[in-house]
Design a binder for these strands. Structure first.
Lengths: 187, 187
DNA sequence: AAATGCCTACCTAGTAGTAGGACGATTTCT
DNA sequence: AGAAATCGTCCTACTACTAGGTAGGCATTT
């Protein structure tokens, strides 16, 4: 089916972008991975810029769904924060991968303006959600020492991202754990 | 003089790497910037990998000197932490640049193993120094709520780096400020 | 004489993207 | 219903360009 190929391309591209960066994979790589000729990829995604937009769009929707799901399955602010941290931790995949947002942030140069805007919206969405998490944790007492949920949220995302970057550069997930200990020790 | 050309190349390469990433500049770019032919660059740095090693080596020494200087010119832990934050903030250059360590961390794929090791040493050095800063702030009371200097230090560097990344992707230094507010509000 | 620093000219490999055709499925027209 | 045209998907073959790197020569300095 048509949709399958397109999804397979997105899956392959996302994995490649997260492990090797947006400039770290080519249409030739996707071609080999998905099993369709290089030129045929252009049928689904005319340019690499268009591919990047599609990737970021899907990623935004995915993460929004993740946050919604966490709200449903975890009741306290502390449990929700833990779930978010776990999500970023598992995205590391043993120190070989990043979340797409971090990966794209590092490839700014090669991305169209539209993706930059998408990244901005993505970050706002995550930070806004995180603020509700800290506010809940403040209210229900599941996160210690919350003075200002907005300040906490504005720091939490960059911390998670910086921790991912540090852990991947040395392929050592323990660096992620030690970086986010400042959060986990309060739970 | 010979040294001048070499230094000019390093300067140009560092600026390029910090603004456009290690994969974002070529020997052709350096050639145009420094005013010597592309092939001549290979005389000074046989491979781009060799250039990356030289860049990171110089950067390590630079930052070590910066930390030493901060220790001399700033007496309290709080003042030293502020100085470090300011350093990372000014490295942003209006949201167009990163510190070399972050930039290189994002280009892991393209860098030789030696540079990865250098990055590890660099991060250890900064974190160790930052721990002394938090310990001092704890003792002299200039940083509030320091429970564990080691945990604080392990988080501070990733936070600064993540904050830089976020600020650059949208070319908005205010994002850096809002991310590090969790630190500055304690000073 | 030797080394340094730089040059012109070139190579190989890889990049995104294009042109144009094959082929099967679906839709449309008679 | 059957023929014809259209569309979606994929193909081979190619273009234009950029990348890092090499070979070999020519001055100037030591």
């Amino acid at each position: 089916m048509a949709t399958d190929t397109k999804t397979a391309l997105l899956n392959s591209a996302e994995r490649a972008a997260r492990t090797r960066g947006f400039d770290g994979f080519s249409y030739a790589d996707l071609s080999a991975d998905v099993g369709i000729r290089k030129a045929s990829i252009h049928h689904h995604f005319p340019t690499k810029a268009a591919l990047s937009v599609a990737l970021m769009e899907r990623y935004y929707d995915d993460l929004k769904a993740v946050c919604d799901q966490i709200d449903v399955s975890h009741k306290t602010g502390g449990a929700r924060l833990t779930a978010l941290i776990d999500r970023y931790r598992s995205a590391l995949e043993g120190g070989k991968s990043l979340c797409l947002c971090v990966s794209f942030s590092t490839s700014r140069e090669s991305l169209p303006e539209e993706v930059i805007a998408q990244i901005g919206r993505f970050r706002e969405m995550i930070i806004a959600w995180t603020e509700t998490v800290f506010a809940a944790g403040q209210t229900d007492g599941s996160i210690a020492h919350v003075a200002n949920p907005a300040v906490e949220a504005a720091a939490a995302l960059p911390l998670l991202e910086g921790a991912q970057l540090a852990a991947r550069v040395e392929e050592n997930p323990a660096l992620f754990d030690s970086a986010v200990q400042i959060l986990t020790q309060r739970l």
